[in-house]
């Protein structure tokens, strides 16, 4: 069973739909026991960073996730806001601390070219900076993924960056550190490449 962390933000049904399409059993929940019994976790979410952390805290999920992910090494995949929450902090609206599993700050996406619009919405290439990451099994380098965001993660100093995307300048688009995985893009909305990547996490992580 795949635990999809419900913290009251965003479209969980898309993620659940993709998970079940791939033959796994999704369970959308904020219940600690259910998350504990899940084989793997997905932390989805769209919305604002401060709300994300506040909602996790309100549901008592920060301690639960720290325990499951850091102590018990349960694999987790953060997507979009869920990916940013893995970081140390964000500047969205105000400085807010994150889960801190990936040592990198989240800052406003400032494309080098003033012609580039923000939010960054649409299909863009993913450069695999660590092609050996299991997420990329069967996924060609420079495959297109669907992005929609205004903030982005800086480069983590610990080598956990596995993929980048370029929008005016390169930014961190995918990370892996042990059993912690994250993608700024939406694999559940990125057609075949996205489904392959998601399946890699579900099957191999």
């Amino acid at each position: 069973m795949i635990g999809i962390v419900d913290y009251g933000l965003g479209n969980l049904t898309s993620v659940a739909g993709a998970v079940s399409k791939l033959g796994f059993e999704p369970h959308i929940t904020s219940n600690a026991d259910a998350l504990t019994s899940a084989d793997k976790l997905v932390l989805p979410g769209v919305g604002a960073f401060p709300d994300g952390m506040a909602n996790l805290a309100e549901r008592g999920l920060i301690d639960v996730l720290n325990d499951l992910v850091l102590k018990r090494r349960k694999p987790i995949l953060g997507i979009c806001l869920g990916f940013q929450l893995l970081g140390r902090s964000s500047e969205e609206f105000r400085h807010t601390g994150g889960l801190g599993w990936i040592d990198a700050a989240v800052t406003r996406l400032k494309p080098g070219d003033p012609e580039l619009r923000v939010p960054h919405v649409g299909w863009n290439d993913l450069t695999q900076t660590r092609p050996d990451c299991i997420l990329f099994d069967g996924v060609a380098d420079q495959s297109l993924f669907y992005f929609v965001h205004s903030y982005c993660m800086e480069t983590p100093p610990d080598g956990s960056q596995v993929g980048t995307c370029d929008y005016g300048r390169p930014f961190t688009a995918a990370v892996q550190k042990g059993s912690v995985f994250g993608t700024q893009f939406h694999p559940e909305k990125s057609q075949q490449a996205g489904l392959t990547l998601l399946n890699n996490f579900l099957e191999k992580a």
Binding site: G10, N11, T13, S14, G17, A18, K21, V46, Y146, V148, H186, E188, K189, S190, Q191, Q192, G194, L195
Partner: peptide
């Protein structure tokens, strides 16, 4: 459809929007 879905029509309140998200809108 594993692409983004934008959904609308008659949205007047946050609850209407919530409903559209709940049925599968991104």
């Amino acid at each position: 459809c594993f692409v983004p879905l934008a959904v609308g029509g008659g949205i007047r309140t946050l609850d209407d929007a919530r409903r559209m998200m709940a049925v599968g809108g991104d």
